[in-house]
Simulated assay, not measured.
Amino acid sequence: MKWVKQDLQQYIQAKEYVDTIIVPLIPFQLSNDASLEKNAFQREVLSLFTRDLEKELSGRILLSPDYHYLASVDKETEINRMNAWIDDIQSQPFQHIFFVSSDSGWKKVEQGLKGTLIWLPAATADSMQPTEIQPIIRNQVQQVSELIRTYWKG
């Protein structure tokens, strides 16, 4: 289920079956021209990935709104804000919370997160043709879907 009115209406009716939430982590920084295109491309790819993941695991997950953070801010500082999100999320019956990011900086601080980090290596627009992106995303979705299913079994 996506963060849209119709899906949220369904969620409210079936929340006992929706035990997993996916939180996309999106870097943002207008003050650094060198990273603008890279960050925008990563957001586009992550958006495609999370939409496909939501379709693959439909009925069991809720895709939260993107969590935007300043790329220049220390991740340790950002964790407090993120965990406040999670405290609110946990007022619902979510048993599994997954963060999805292409920013490897989150790996260093993931133990402070109130959830599980799924890190996807970032693709760069320079190294990929548009026709190559969808098969790669599809492959990643299949792998991550299997990972999430192992959490459901445990």
Results as ranks from 00 to 15, higher is better:
residue 43 R to T: 15
residue 44 E to S: 14
residue 44 E to N: 13
residue 45 V to L: 09
residue 45 V to I: 15
residue 45 V to F: 06
residue 46 L to Y: 11
residue 46 L to H: 04
residue 46 L to W: 10
residue 47 S to C: 11
residue 47 S to P: 10
residue 47 S to L: 11
residue 47 S to M: 11
residue 47 S to N: 15
residue 48 L to M: 13
residue 48 L to I: 12
residue 48 L to W: 10
residue 49 F to W: 02
residue 49 F to M: 02
residue 49 F to R: 01
residue 49 F to C: 06
residue 49 F to L: 13
residue 50 T to E: 09
residue 50 T to K: 04
residue 50 T to N: 12
residue 50 T to I: 12
residue 50 T to V: 15
residue 50 T to D: 10
residue 51 R to E: 15
residue 51 R to V: 11
residue 51 R to T: 11
residue 51 R to I: 13
residue 51 R to Q: 14
residue 52 D to K: 14
residue 52 D to P: 07
residue 52 D to Q: 15
residue 53 L to S: 06
residue 54 E to S: 12
residue 54 E to D: 13
residue 55 K to Y: 10
residue 55 K to E: 14
residue 56 E to R: 15
residue 56 E to P: 08
residue 56 E to W: 07
residue 56 E to I: 07
residue 56 E to C: 13
residue 57 L to W: 08
residue 57 L to Q: 07
residue 57 L to A: 12
residue 58 S to N: 13
residue 58 S to Q: 10
residue 59 G to M: 03
residue 59 G to R: 00
residue 59 G to P: 01
residue 60 R to T: 12
residue 60 R to A: 13
residue 60 R to N: 09
residue 61 I to Q: 04
residue 61 I to M: 01
residue 62 L to Q: 09
residue 62 L to H: 04
residue 62 L to D: 05
residue 62 L to C: 02
residue 63 L to A: 01
residue 63 L to I: 03
residue 63 L to V: 04
residue 64 S to W: 12
residue 64 S to I: 00
residue 64 S to K: 00
residue 65 P to E: 09
residue 65 P to Q: 12
residue 65 P to S: 08
residue 65 P to A: 06
residue 65 P to R: 06
residue 66 D to H: 11
residue 66 D to Q: 11
residue 66 D to V: 02
residue 66 D to E: 14
residue 66 D to F: 09
residue 67 Y to H: 10
residue 67 Y to M: 07
residue 67 Y to T: 12
residue 68 H to Q: 05
residue 68 H to N: 10
residue 69 Y to L: 08
residue 69 Y to S: 08
residue 70 L to F: 05
residue 70 L to W: 04
residue 71 A to T: 06
